[in-house]
Simulated scan of single mutants.
Amino acid sequence: MKGGFYKLYGIDAIVRIFSHFAFIYLTFWALQSLRVENLFKKGQQYYKQIRLIYVLFSIFIGYTVSNFFMEVMFLTRDLFQGFLS
């Protein structure tokens, strides 16, 4: 049975969900340090749209980075399981 204990108890899914949210949060936090005010239109009416772009961009980058790290982690786990069996 591929995955064994991890897939049986849903630990795989919990780790993935936690990883996605953690990387999305880290990306949002990191994007706050950029000065991108010059890229957007001036005015209070655009504030919500700018925030939405930050959130969507954070989700895109955070999800992609999380998938990369999860893939490396699971490939490494499978590699070691292959050596041990």
Rank of each mutant, 00 (worst) to 15 (best):
Q49H: 15
K48M: 15
G82Q: 04
M1C: 07
S58K: 01
F5E: 10
F60I: 02
E71M: 08
L26C: 05
Y46E: 07
I53F: 07
R77G: 04
S66A: 15
F69S: 03
I61A: 02
I53Q: 01
I50H: 04
V15D: 02
I50W: 00
Y25P: 06
S33D: 14
M70S: 12
K7R: 11
G43W: 01
D12L: 08
S66R: 01
T76L: 05
L84K: 11
I11P: 09
M70N: 07
K2P: 12
Q32V: 08
G4W: 03
I17T: 05
R16V: 06
I53T: 08
I17N: 02
I59M: 13
I17W: 09
S33N: 10
T27K: 06
F5I: 10
D78H: 08
L39C: 09
F23W: 03
F18H: 02
F69H: 04
S85W: 07
I24H: 02
L52I: 10
L31Y: 09
K41A: 10
S19L: 02
G82A: 02
E71D: 10
Q81N: 14
I17E: 02
K2S: 08
S58N: 04
F83I: 12
N38K: 09
F60P: 01
T64C: 13
L52G: 05
V65M: 01
Y47D: 12
H20I: 11
M1Y: 04
F21M: 08
Y63M: 15
K7Y: 04
F80H: 00
Q44G: 03
F60Y: 07
L75H: 08
L31E: 09
F68D: 09
Q49T: 13
S33W: 14
M1G: 13
I59V: 15
I50T: 05
Y54C: 04
I17K: 05
S66N: 00
L39I: 11
D12E: 13
Q32P: 03
Q81I: 12
A13E: 05
Q81W: 05
L84I: 15
I17Q: 03
